[in-house]
Amino acid sequence: MKLSDVHVREKIQAGDITIEPPLSEQQIGSFSIDLRLGNHFRIFKPTKSPFIDLGAVDSAYAMSEQLMEDIYIPDDGAFYLHSGELALGVTLEKLTLPNDLVGWLDGRSSLARLGLMVHITAHTIDPGWDGNITLEFVNIGQIPLALRPQMRICAISFEPLSSPSACPYTKKSHAKYIGQSEPLGSQIDKEQH
């Protein structure tokens, strides 16, 4: 069962959920919180490489790092996501969750109706999470979309677990994105086999 706005506010006031910078009233919905877009993006550079070999873990990571570049957009600027493009972005807000809550990230309906996907498949925010959230943008529409820093880009809701997690995200030996503050590319090379 997801937390209502009443219980989300209680968790924030108690310090169980921390969000920095502080939220505005417009960001708090009936059971979710709208998160805003940060200024840092990562995109794939044009390449002649025919593929990234996902079966060759070490080379897949190295290849993705070589193929990506960082882009910083000023507060008054825009990042243009063209039709069919994939780009990584990051939330402005840093989020810390307790060991007994899981977060569920969703795109905003108003943006989805224009063709924007914000989390291809990665929408679970683990108990014990601590960091900004990397967003996986794809424009499935036909017209480029201008994404502006600080716009409300996605929503997060919270669901209590049946007990605190015995192994929250920050305690996992194979956690690849602990404390991230920028959009990180695939860290598939850090997976245990």
Rank of each mutant, 00 (worst) to 15 (best):
L3M: 06
S4D: 12
H7R: 14
H7E: 15
V8E: 04
K11W: 04
I12Y: 07
Q13R: 09
Q13A: 15
Q13G: 07
A14M: 05
G15E: 12
I19K: 06
P21S: 02
L23V: 09
L23Q: 07
S24M: 14
E25T: 14
Q26V: 12
Q26F: 10
I28H: 04
S30T: 05
F31T: 07
F31G: 15
I33K: 09
I33N: 09
D34E: 13
D34A: 13
R36A: 09
R36H: 11
R36L: 08
H40F: 09
R42V: 01
P46K: 01
P50E: 12
P50R: 12
F51E: 11
D53A: 08
G55M: 09
A56H: 15
D58P: 11
S59Q: 15
A60M: 13
A62T: 12
A62C: 09
A62W: 11
E65V: 07
L67M: 15
L67C: 08
D70K: 14
D70H: 08
I73T: 04
D75R: 07
Y80G: 07
L81D: 03
G84Q: 04
L88Q: 00
L88Y: 01
V90I: 15
L92D: 09
L95P: 00
T96G: 06
L97Q: 03
G103A: 07
D106T: 10
S110H: 12
L111W: 05
R113N: 00
L114I: 11
G115R: 03
L116R: 03
L116C: 06
V118M: 13
I120V: 14
T121N: 14
T124W: 04
G128M: 00
G128W: 02
W129Q: 01
D130Q: 01
D130M: 01
D130W: 04
I133T: 05
L135S: 01
L135T: 05
F137G: 10
F137P: 14
V138Y: 02
N139I: 08
N139R: 04
G141C: 08
I143T: 13
L145V: 08
R148W: 02
P149A: 03
P149Y: 01
R152V: 06
I153Y: 13
C154I: 01
A155S: 15
I156P: 06
I156T: 10
E159D: 13
E159T: 09
A166C: 08
A166Q: 08
C167R: 07
P168A: 04
T170P: 02
K172P: 12
H174Y: 14
H174F: 15
G179W: 04
E182Y: 11
L184I: 05
G185F: 00
G185R: 02
S186C: 08
S186V: 13
Q187F: 02
Q187M: 13
I188E: 00
I188F: 00
K190W: 04
E191W: 05
H193L: 10
